[in-house]
């Protein structure tokens, strides 16, 4: 089983190398090769997740190692869906780097399959974690698009202008996607908590920070679609939102205690 993980990791590393080659050599074929390798990496990660699921007899979404693998998978899946709109070498390179760092970080945690405490033995775990991480994947891609937008804004060429247009679209679409799935994730978590503990909201630090993240992105969407915010203002809000995602995911685990201390 660990072989499937190693193959996935190796493919992500190859994708990263190709992406960096793509930064120097902007021919389309390099981008296509990188995209192909990323598809293979997603396929290998999918095989690994399925194998782990079968071995454990439950969805492999219950500790840091498993969630980081899922996070890498969702980033790649969202990236593949927006690739047509965003064939930019810098975005591909940044996303590949993010995926490799996520998987490398995952290897610092134990990959052992452990039995679940009773509270986690629920099908809601699968839906809750999966939807939250689909949301995180969307926000991660939006974040990279936003960073790229800020960088592209320093140039005044026609190419930079067109690039910014693509980035703008992807930034908004991935935030909308992420927001929908984060909402589903928070709500399925609430339903699960109500079936396990009799309360759908207990101001647990992870819950509270997910609400903060939700509020930031709700602000992003309202500013964009009602106030008409565009460009750098939108990009900086997306960056702020992703900082909140990172704190919700990592910061709460390491700095604050609560019901989610296992993940």
């Amino acid at each position: 089983m660990i072989t499937a993980f190693n193959i996935s990791f190796a493919l992500c590393l190859v994708a990263l190398i190709v992406a960096f080659v793509g930064l120097l050599n902007k021919r389309e074929i390099v981008g296509r090769i990188g995209f192909g390798v990323n598809i293979l990496a997603v396929a290998a990660l999918t095989v690994y997740i399925v194998m782990r699921w079968m071995a454990a007899g439950r969805a492999p979404f219950s500790n840091m190692f498993e969630s980081l693998v899922l996070f890498a998978w969702t980033i790649l899946v969202v990236y593949i869906f927006v690739y047509k709109k965003l064939k930019l070498p810098i975005v591909t390179a940044a996303l590949s780097l993010m995926v490799v760092l996520t998987l490398a970080y995952a290897t610092t945690f134990g990959a052992d399959i452990r039995p679940l405490v009773p509270a986690l033995q629920s099908n809601w775990l699968t839906v809750h974690v999966f939807t939250c991480f689909l949301g995180y994947g969307g926000f991660a891609v939006s974040f990279i698009a936003a960073i790229s937008y800020v960088i592209a804004s320093r140039e005044n060429s026609k190419a930079a202008y067109e690039t910014k247009d693509s980035l703008e679209v992807v930034m908004a679409k991935t935030v909308a996607f992420g927001f929908l799935f984060l909402t589903v994730g928070i709500m399925t978590g609430a339903v699960w908590a109500n079936s396990a503990w009799g309360t759908y909201w207990s101001w647990d630090p992870k819950e509270t920070w997910s609400l903060v993240t939700w509020l930031v992105y709700a602000g992003f969407l309202h500013c964009r679609f009602i106030k008409g915010w565009r460009g750098q203002k939108s990009a900086w809000m997306s960056i702020l939102g992703f900082i909140s995602v990172l704190f919700t995911y990592f910061g709460v685990n390491f700095l604050l205690k609560g019901l989610h201390s296992y993940l």
Binding site: D165, A172, F179, L180, F225, I226
Partner: peptide, 23 residues
Amino acid sequence: LAMVFYVDPNLSVDSHGGGKNSI
């Protein structure tokens, strides 16, 4: 949310005009 974002999506960009793209 699904209706706002996907049934009748309104996510196209008018960044040149900078006009409102309101929902």
